[in-house]
Design a protein around this nucleic acid. Structure first.
Lengths: 237, 237
DNA sequence: ATAAGCTATTTGGTAATACCAATTTTTGGG
DNA sequence: CCCAAAAATTGGTATTACCAAATAGCTTAT
């Protein structure tokens, strides 16, 4: 029984996910270089102290995220970074502590900058009646939290996440759907809202909300851009 | 031996991927409804004529793409569509023939519209010297193909894919990397270039290329938007 | 020197078994 | 008759052992 095993077996999640996370972090951190061949299945089984089945499931998981590629006889290789699926929520979670947090959040904002204004514009045009009703409901909650005497950070993050996710879900475009989950993951793991966010952001959100409800896509796009610019100004870099 | 088995065993890809594809397509087409519980592992093993291990690997693969979620005793459930990762290349491939092709391409263009202009702008600012050299090389090839006596559609698609992928890789932002693969997958599976594309598009690509090389991000963004508008005008819807 | 074929290695796939956790059913007391 | 505790059932989790397929690199024969 080696140390690696204990640390893995003690945790909660299913075994192969834990093994996958360990390997993923070694890849993401560069400890296992791109194009290098990782140890054979049996070696890794010994190293992690798990069965071959569990390890194989882990390798399959990483293969599906574009981190590994297996071939008989050759072994399992780390594929080039260009093929890693950074738009996978689980992979994003695994990034925790790997790269500089501020830089990572800044890059994510670079993605939001492209996606969200357009998503808001599409939502203004395509949101269903049910989605508009739900958005109203969520916005009401945002107001309540922003106007409360004591600012509840956890609640704000939750509602903020729901607000932006619902917009992605209201675009009527399947390719925008995943961004809701990515945003949720980022908010939950990397982005820490300050206590002043509620009061200052509520007007920006109101602009987005009103434009979408009014079906004014240009105004929605603009309001989203403005909001993201404000978010950017708060970032350390 | 039932029919399902034969059709799967005869194919090329690894077994669990084939099983995963079968199940995925049933989910994507709505044949297995959202939130429904799929048959138990042993039942599915019989149905597909594969071992429990192979089926489990398939389920794991689909879980990682957000299509399924397993819990002991409860069984394996199809999760809601909002959680499906439509930004996964393999999932996109599996969509073939499921939804209306023109509509699907149109929606994809809706994504490109958001992402690519910003990617071009970032690339203009952040591309390394090596990346700029590589982009030059690719653009040269585009010109050659466009100016050739007979238009080679396969070559054009290949080079066009490389051109756009390289731009995503040159943004210096990890969240833009996966779009290169998504675009490659879409070009290979869904988007069919007409023979007139080469001659008409080359000037648009030149605008993008020049702006990036000149480090003019605003011009790059605009050139990309113009190009995508031209692409849109060619779509049937 | 070269091409055909062999061999060892590494992943791919199957089957049997034990285990654990959640739900459902049974059972027994009030 | 009701309710709660305990037992059986069910379905995913994990391990083990074994065989098949693929292939890089060596060997051997021409």
């Amino acid at each position: 029984m080696n140390g690696d095993f204990e640390s893995i077996a003690g945790s909660k999640r299913s075994l192969h996910v834990q093994v996958a996370r360990e390997i993923a972090r070694k890849i993401l951190s560069g400890q296992l270089p791109q194009n290098s061949v990782i140890p054979s299945e049996v070696d890794l089984c010994e190293q992690f102290g798990v069965s071959r089945t569990a390890l194989r499931e882990a390798v399959k998981l990483l293969t599906s995220k574009g981190l590994l590629k297996s071939r008989p006889k050759v072994g399992t290789k780390v594929v080039e970074r260009a093929y890693w699926n950074f738009l996978d929520s689980q992979l994003i979670e695994w990034m925790d502590g790997i790269s500089d947090n501020d830089e990572f959040c800044s890059q994510f904002l670079g993605l939001r900058n492209a996606i969200e204004p357009e998503a808001c514009a599409l939502a203004a045009r395509n949101a269903t009646v049910e989605q508009r009703m739900k958005l109203s409901e969520i916005f009401e909650q945002m107001c309540d939290i922003a106007n409360a005497d004591v600012f509840d950070q956890a609640k704000w993050t939750s509602v903020d996440t729901q607000f932006h996710s619902l917009i992605f879900n209201s675009t009527g475009n399947v390719f925008y759907l995943p961004f809701g989950n990515i945003l949720t993951t980022m908010f939950a793991n990397f982005i820490h809202h300050s206590s002043t966010d509620g009061s200052t952001c509520i007007e920006e959100h109101r602009q987005i909300y009103s434009a979408i409800m009014a079906g004014n896509s240009d105004k929605a796009r603009l309001a989203s851009s403005t909001h993201l610019q404000a978010v950017k100004d708060k970032l350390p870099i």
